[in-house]
Design a protein around this nucleic acid. Structure first.
Lengths: 173, 173
DNA sequence: TATTGTTATACTCTATAACTATA
DNA sequence: TATAGTTATAGAGTATAACAATA
């Protein structure tokens, strides 16, 4: 056999033992994230920076991140990028920057009425787009996927606000 | 109340009805994908272009993509980017380009012995890193997450090779 | 004429460092 | 001294268009 050859199996044999390449996980994550951004693109077209701007706005509305930096780390965005992002959101009249009275180095990012309205009108379309993206899953499977994703994300060391906790809070206002 | 205010609930009330923002999905996907790349970074340090180079090599070993273009679309990479990526893999002696006899416009990407060895040694570390990433999930939950991710990815219109099918093929050679 | 792969170019996103103001 | 935010710069990643070879 010549030097370069083609393997026809998913699991290459190592030391006579077949080993799963085990890489479908990262690949599936990538495919899904690209699909997600593709599907919600139209739903969030009004927001600067697309899905990123929308996700930032959604997080601002949740109101759990006290500062611009907390917002950035929660969303996995560099703090220098967050500056430009908030600039554009502010220019569009979707948020305001307010100095935190408790620590005047920090800026609280607060949604304007217009910002909230825009998110509220967009979020339904986003939910629809998500349902379309997960069209091959039935209701139980979607719920299971959501739960497992959130549980797994909670294990990455990133700060996670448990959506169930907020849902509970919502259930008894 | 002043113009800009802070919402304290995850689910903003629309027309008197509470609506889930429904965006945790995209957020969790992003967190997991970043965590995945962070965790496997060390395991795939030998490959040019990091995780992307490794995933390309893994796909080459699977041997299901007949051309450079097929490889690119499967991995969600632009074909112009794939050119540079394959260039670097070839320079490192991990793959070879071969004209496809059936269609001489196409190039088959074939792993060299060295390329296969490198993937085989890396894939175990990748599997370990994945297990670490999903540390908060038990065995059943990990299996369920894998299954749901692949099923959902299959619904995005991207071409998907069913890992179970290949695993089956592996089971009876 | 359409497709695969390549190259060149420009654009976007991201990372790094320096600066300010506050603590 | 350390942190939050800003700004400027450079780098990586990505997209667009033009081209050659082949169908």
């Amino acid at each position: 056999m010549d030097e370069a050859r083609r393997s026809t199996t998913l699991a290459p044999v190592i030391d006579g033992e077949s080993v799963d390449l085990g890489d479908d996980f990262g690949w599936a994550l990538g495919v899904l994230l690209r699909g997600y951004r593709d599907h919600v693109k139209d739903a969030v077209g009004e927001f600067p920076h697309g899905t990123r701007g929308y996700e930032t706005m959604a997080e601002v509305l949740r109101g759990t991140q006290p500062s611009q930096l907390a917002l950035a780390t929660h969303l996995g965005i560099d703090r220098t990028v967050m500056t430009y992002l908030v600039d554009d959101l502010e220019n569009d009249g979707l948020v305001e920057r307010r100095p935190n009275p408790a620590d005047r180095r920090q800026r609280q990012i607060v949604a304007t009425d217009r910002g909230r309205e825009l998110v509220e009108s967009a979020c339904r379309r986003v939910v629809e787009a998500q349902a379309e993206l997960l069209g091959t899953l039935d209701g139980d499977e979607r719920a299971a996927l959501r739960r497992l994703l959130n549980k797994a994300a909670a294990g990455t060391g990133e700060d996670v606000d448990d959506p169930c906790a907020v849902a509970d809070e919502e259930a008894r206002p």
